[in-house]
Amino acid sequence: MGTGRGRFYRKGQVPPVSELKSKIIEALDEAEFVLGWTATGSGAAAPARFHNAGEAEDAVFDSTCVHNLAVQLPRLKDKTVGIVAKSCDARSIVQLAAEREVDLERVKLIAVDCPGMIDVKSIRRSFGFGASIEDDGTSLRIASAEAEREEFIVAKCRGCEDRDGGAGDPGNHPLREKFYSMSAVERRAFWRDHYSRCIRCYACREACPMCFCRDVCIMQTRDPHWIGGGVNSAEAEMMQLIRVNHLAGRCSGCGECERACPVGIPLMLLIDEQNRVIQEMFGYRAGIDPEAKPPLLSFNIKGDIWEEE
């Protein structure tokens, strides 16, 4: 995917960014606009829409372009749009296509190589807001000093299979070992503890490209009344059970839910586990083949890989 493996675009590095811009401009021939990133004063890039060549001048791609822009696509179904996508984002687009939420004919994909996104928030937490961050995709300098880049990569990129230096292990959650050493009873307590911090902001849902029900989500209805309106550990647990249930066989593991969580609930532990189980049961990974039948919307009379008897 993309061009020049290992290359990394940073504002000011003229040739590669110009390449990105020209691709955006090219896509605008057909696309109404292109979803991408623009630089902000804060030092971290922000999502943006480019409607014309002039706006495309502001396009960037750097190691702070952490968002999965595919989340916007289901609401743009009736438009032809372009989108700048990392490999994880592309899997979400493929899965949306498999679920007929995206028409691949109407999405102009601009693929970019991703070196793994850096965790600006945690760097600032450790080094202070003013510390300068320079990253070329292979070496990271914080406050003008060399830093171990892999240590400051966002959680969702650590296990990445598609970038150089990624662990190639999508379930590589920092808390994984701790979590799997616990008994079922301990895990319940672990979750209840984490869930007690939930402020029910729905950021996990909003960041998820596969949660496209939006205003009819069962987390906010009384018919059906699966969940109450309270902000507490029990309701938060139900919220996550709903989310995990709804993502079965659909999640490409982009990690946006956990990254978006303002109170740091390790949501990807459950998601990774489910993705692992789905692969174990059905040999299926979401977002790989837009023609593949999603495992929970199909069945095999003769029994599946995991077949019981």
């Binding site: 029900c213 009819v216 989500c217 069962i218 018919d223 059906p224 009344h225 699966w226 919307l297």
Partner: peptide
């Protein structure tokens, strides 16, 4: 069960009845 927002509902066995 397949409907994520459960807007398709089996009459006589609705989610709310079962819940």
């Amino acid at each position: 069960v397949a409907c994520p927002p459960a807007v398709i509902s089996l009459k006589g066995y609705t989610d709310n009845q079962l819940i």
